[in-house]
Design a protein around this nucleic acid. Sequence first.
DNA 1: ATGCCGCACTAAGTGCGA
Length: 258
Amino acid sequence: MRLATWNVNSVKARLPRLLPWLAETGPDVLCLQETKCPDGAFPVTEVGALGYQVASHSDGRWNGVAILSRVGLDDVRVGFTDEPGFPEPEARSISATCAGTRVWSIYVPNGRTTDSPHYRYKLDWLAALRTALGDELRAGAPLVVCGDFNVAPTDADVWDPALFVGSTHVTPAERDALARLRALGLRDVVPTPMKGPHPFTYWDYRAGMFHQNKGMRIDLVYATEDFADRVTAAYVDREARKGKSPSDHAPIVVDISE
DNA sequence: ATGCCGCACTAAGTGCGA
């Protein structure tokens, strides 16, 4: 099975990139984030023509997550128990069972700055996610959490750690929240960079950040041991960040043996 | 060359992203 995750920064704007990418890469399951697509406007016909079922969760202009699958899409759940909001819960989590694996697509709140209420919201959201995942892991099925975690796990996951001192995405509290997810039994499936030493997944649109490879690894794949042990390859598809009208994130592609 | 911000909403200006 081939699984992928991609923050597309608007599924509508990215459709001319998404459709050929699906046809060429052929993931069996694709987790999307920042679809920015109102309910009912998701291009289900276009991706359906490529053989994919869609489960999406939207709140209009911002956020939005989805799962595309051509190997089944059952027991879809939007959000999770006791999910924090700002003030109301936003469209940041959707999960489904695909070919026997519980798949989550998540878009963690940005946090903005460490003195912002959005930062508290981010930490609370990650803590509640941990609780919800812990509950689901007791069921014992293989599980994988994919998405834009908005946290760089280590200093090697940002292009210049000195520039990030005092910023969100790198604080001990955020990294501890990730460590607590791993402590549930989830393993960080680190992709191959394809170029350079760092498997960055995000490069700002501005100032030529991509061509200087000044990026961050903030899109992650966290998998249960039984799933992670079956991973045969994982890579960052930098090609999708090139060319006309790309997302500012690149997809991660993971191959798993049956 | 991978190339110097883009998206949504709405109608030029703002909010957001990390």
